[in-house]
Design a protein around this nucleic acid. Sequence first.
DNA 1: CTCGGTGCAAAGCTTTTGCATCCGC
DNA 2: GCGGATGCAAAAGCTTTGCACCGAG
Lengths: 154, 154
Amino acid sequence: MALNPKQYEAVRQIFTAYLEKKALRKTTERYAILEEIYSLSGHFDVEALFIHLKNKDYGVSRATVYNTLDLLVECDLVSKHQFGKNLAQYEKSYGSKQHDHLICTDCSKVVEFCDPRIQNIQNTVEELLHFNVMHHSLILYASCKKENCENKRL
Amino acid sequence: MALNPKQYEAVRQIFTAYLEKKALRKTTERYAILEEIYSLSGHFDVEALFIHLKNKDYGVSRATVYNTLDLLVECDLVSKHQFGKNLAQYEKSYGSKQHDHLICTDCSKVVEFCDPRIQNIQNTVEELLHFNVMHHSLILYASCKKENCENKRL
DNA sequence: CTCGGTGCAAAGCTTTTGCATCCGC
DNA sequence: GCGGATGCAAAAGCTTTGCACCGAG
């Protein structure tokens, strides 16, 4: 799940290249946020990331977190999700396999799954509607059968 | 697109049956909201619906609009979407073919499309993960090629 | 030195909540 | 008449914005 140092260096370089291309400044805050995100596993929201950063020596403001997340989404190092709630969820995306999400309607748990057939659908729609599909979001809302669901026991 | 009187009567009856099953009251506000929704075409957000209702003789409050939308979503007469923004979009769903959405990254225009293969993916995931998929949301984010996009001309 | 970026707090927007009033049952 | 539903407004929660200060280039 976690990246090794070499992989993380590649991530930094992608971000650096993006900042240079856009003539944006390479601030310590931006790299601190990138590093924190890649040290996390799974999904997180802005507030959780902000708290994590606040608990370190180096604090950043919410405004900067929002600003930097936008940049990271734009250069594909982070992906943003709206899982039906009015709260954006993020996750690091470098080195991760393309995947989609299933959300348990009982306990809100998020499960990831892969299905290559989604690509076929994209291709068909591209041809039919004459669009270039950049990315997609497939969310399955499902209820678990019996003891699968952790929160069933609560 | 619009329902004929007979179809709309079926919609009313579904809502009535749902309210009775749940022992909820059949208020005039609830039916007024249902009627307004089924007179609209395409997607709408809460504020737009609220304004429409406000402009009629019969006014309802935002709180009631939110409350009633939840009920209508629960009995499958209305579907709710989160198109990447922090603003829920709704659309009537009775008599509509199952469909998914493509959003133009240039002009935010929403295009509907159908693809039966999404059902196969659902079936596979159900078996693999032991979940009962209730519904899904597939959104393709795409940029139009050339003159397809209405806003390209702006 | 310049001007983009940051931090902080205020403002903005959508949605939820509390409470008095109202009306379906 | 009782208790759920409504209306209104206030509150809550996430995100954006304005402005003074800071620091990368």
